[in-house]
Design a protein around this nucleic acid. Structure first.
Lengths: 214, 214
DNA sequence: GAGATCGGGTAGACAGTGTCTACTCGACCT
DNA sequence: AGGTCGAGTAGACACTGTCTACCCGATCTC
């Protein structure tokens, strides 16, 4: 049984170096979240068991409880990283100089691209039991994104009574496409696995035909 | 409370009567599905553990395995009942005499109403791990519904290049609204919990403003 | 009619999970 | 030196899904 001699938590502990940088609370909390993000991206949302995360972080299964009193809170912290990354992708792609219609299209593309490339994370981010447990404040994380979308919609359709409703409808449509895509039901509509045709139809429907400014 | 004296599996076994009618496979299989449907409607999708279903059906936890080799297959059988009920509701509400636009609106209303009143079942029906395990053939269950929607869309927008894409976009939108509704994010868009305004906007967007035939 | 077969259900084991609790251990403070 | 306390360990508990051996009673066969 000497093969278990090196896989313990002996040597990856240079966090105690304290040589200037890490003024965080020691590191385990962030390490758990980081391991969780890697795990959900690599193996999917169902792989995010509390014990497995602890295992990969090199601590005992009871350790996470110090920082996350329940499994759901750890998952929420991981999902929050997902929202942060999505917001970063949107920020990186959104050019304020282009026309609102194009910005919405780009935003939608980023959104669907995120849902496609970060499948497990996307699934985790919108798990209703995470969003529902209100105190975790996960739902509010998507609020700035929604506000940006609402503003753009208001500029594209200035005569609309309630831009938030239109933006909500568009957002719901994006979600639905991602959903159909994820469970392979896109073939029913488009015959293929590419959400692009659906996305084009959706933008035309909600914002008017392409190339038409108002 | 002497009515609790009969909730065991002692006397409800007249299946052996064999007086003509029931040539089904004995009854436990259907009893499990029935108990599962009741359970998911009463307690939600997360309550559908294999052992709990067996417990409520009055059999040991190993019994379901005779009919459903895995938990997922039992869940699929339960979800199939959901699809059947949804199809029945649609059939009951869909009047072939009315205008296609109104039929689509009615269909969408039935759909969202189902998602609202049968929340747990709706969640179960579209669990991706159920739909993904292809051999169970659950995804195909929604195909006739989708075909009907496609036909109606083709009649409302006869000039469209691909009615299936439009129908897919509309279907995705319904899914998205149900999603937002379920996790309470409708307030972001409409300020309330009623999906009706979003639904109206969605129908206008995909089918053209109301009252406009084509 | 007696004996074998076998479908259908029981019961126990196993590994895995989330949560709770008692404990240990080392750093820090007085 | 002694006490405190944060941080992580380790074991228990009640669950879960799956697998396996068993058992019982009805049916079929000779």
């Amino acid at each position: 049984m000497h093969e278990a001699s090196e896989d313990h938590q002996t040597e990856d502990h240079q966090v105690s170096g304290s040589e200037g940088g890490d003024r965080s609370d020691g590191g385990l909390r962030e390490r758990l979240v980081r391991v969780g993000v890697e795990l959900v991206n690599a193996e999917g949302a169902q792989a995010l068991s509390l014990r497995e995360i602890a295992r990969r972080a090199g601590v005992s299964h009871g350790a996470p409880r110090r920082y996350f009193p329940t499994h759901l809170e750890l998952l929420s912290a991981i999902a929050r990283q997902g929202f942060t990354e999505l917001a970063a992708r949107v920020d990186a792609e959104d050019r304020e100089t282009t026309a609102p219609r194009e910005r919405i299209a780009a935003l939608a593309h980023v959104y669907l691209d995120y849902a496609g490339t970060r499948r497990g994370m996307y699934e985790l981010m919108f798990r209703h039991d995470l969003l529902e447990s209100g105190r975790l404040g996960l739902r509010e994380t998507s609020l700035p994104l929604f506000a940006r979308l609402t503003g753009l919609v208001a500029r594209v359709r200035p005569g609309a009574a309630d831009p938030a409703v239109l933006a909500g409808a568009l957002w719901a449509n994006l979600h639905g496409i991602a959903q159909l895509w994820h469970w392979g039901s896109l073939r029913l509509a488009t015959g293929g696995d590419d959400p692009a045709p659906l996305l084009a139809a959706v933008l035309d429907a909600h914002l008017g035909p392409a190339g038409q400014p108002s």
